[in-house]
Simulated assay, not measured.
Amino acid sequence: MATEQSLNTFISKLPESFPIDKDATMNAFKSMAAFNERFAGIAIDTASRTNEITANTTQESLSRLRELTKVHDDASEYGQAFVNFVQGQMNLTRDTAEAYGKVLGDVREQTAELLSQAGETAKETAEAEVKTAAKKTTSRAKSAAKAPEKAVEAAEETAEKAEEKAEGENA
């Protein structure tokens, strides 16, 4: 039956059974922070660029509306102003779509590069962790294999001391 002492010993040694490499943990944290910083930078740059495109498009549309609503001397000029407005808006829509497409293409490229680098970093870290764990496991297995030998040696020494003590008492 387990005693309170043996339970306390077990619990006190439990953290050693699951060692945490503080350096590896800190490196993982720093790596994630760097990834998040770059990912957030891509998102913020994208928002800024698309906001700029939208603002320019809005300004140009309002300028065209101003031209459309001006007073003209001849009635036929209103028709021409409307045609100019529609053509201008079509061109503006095309240019805006191209600008958004360029931004999205850049974002796709930057994100793919970031994810590729993160995957490579994760692979390298995992390989290093596996090698470290393998070395520790091998070392512990060797130590565990030697433990029975040490126990046998200790038992033999105890038996020898017991024999010597018994011989001393018989003499």
Results as ranks from 00 to 15, higher is better:
8 N>Y: 01
9 T>Y: 04
10 F>P: 01
12 S>W: 00
14 L>F: 10
14 L>W: 06
15 P>W: 02
16 E>L: 11
17 S>M: 12
19 P>I: 03
20 I>L: 09
21 D>M: 02
21 D>Q: 02
22 K>D: 03
23 D>L: 04
23 D>K: 11
26 M>I: 05
30 K>F: 07
30 K>E: 14
31 S>F: 01
31 S>I: 01
32 M>P: 00
32 M>N: 09
34 A>K: 12
34 A>D: 12
35 F>E: 09
35 F>G: 06
36 N>G: 07
39 F>W: 09
39 F>G: 00
40 A>F: 05
41 G>R: 10
43 A>W: 01
44 I>R: 13
46 T>I: 06
47 A>N: 14
47 A>M: 12
47 A>C: 04
48 S>H: 10
48 S>N: 15
49 R>F: 01
50 T>K: 15
50 T>G: 06
52 E>T: 13
55 A>K: 14
55 A>P: 01
57 T>F: 07
57 T>R: 13
60 E>M: 10
61 S>V: 01
62 L>I: 08
62 L>C: 05
63 S>E: 11
64 R>V: 00
65 L>F: 07
65 L>Q: 10
65 L>S: 06
66 R>C: 05
66 R>I: 04
69 T>D: 07
69 T>V: 10
70 K>I: 01
70 K>D: 06
70 K>G: 02
71 V>N: 08
71 V>I: 11
72 H>T: 05
73 D>W: 00
74 D>T: 08
77 E>G: 03
77 E>K: 12
79 G>D: 11
81 A>P: 01
83 V>Q: 13
83 V>I: 13
83 V>P: 00
85 F>V: 07
88 G>L: 03
92 L>K: 10
95 D>T: 07
96 T>A: 11
99 A>M: 02
101 G>V: 02
106 D>W: 00
107 V>L: 06
107 V>C: 04
109 E>A: 15
110 Q>R: 15
112 A>D: 11
112 A>C: 03
112 A>L: 09
113 E>W: 00
114 L>S: 03
116 S>M: 09
116 S>F: 04
118 A>H: 08
119 G>Y: 01
119 G>I: 01
120 E>C: 02
120 E>T: 13
121 T>W: 01
121 T>S: 15
122 A>Y: 03
122 A>G: 03
129 E>C: 09
131 K>E: 12
132 T>H: 04
132 T>A: 15
133 A>D: 12
134 A>Q: 14
134 A>M: 15
138 T>P: 00
139 S>R: 14
140 R>I: 03
140 R>L: 12
140 R>T: 07
141 A>I: 05
144 A>T: 06
146 K>D: 11
147 A>L: 14
149 E>Y: 10
149 E>M: 14
151 A>I: 04
152 V>R: 13
153 E>D: 15
153 E>T: 15
154 A>K: 14
154 A>V: 06
155 A>F: 08
157 E>L: 12
157 E>K: 15
159 A>R: 14
159 A>G: 06
159 A>T: 08
160 E>I: 04
161 K>I: 02
162 A>N: 13
162 A>T: 15
162 A>M: 14
163 E>V: 10
163 E>K: 09
164 E>S: 15
164 E>Y: 03
165 K>P: 00
165 K>W: 05
165 K>Y: 08
168 G>C: 08
169 E>D: 10
170 N>M: 10
170 N>K: 13
171 A>Y: 06
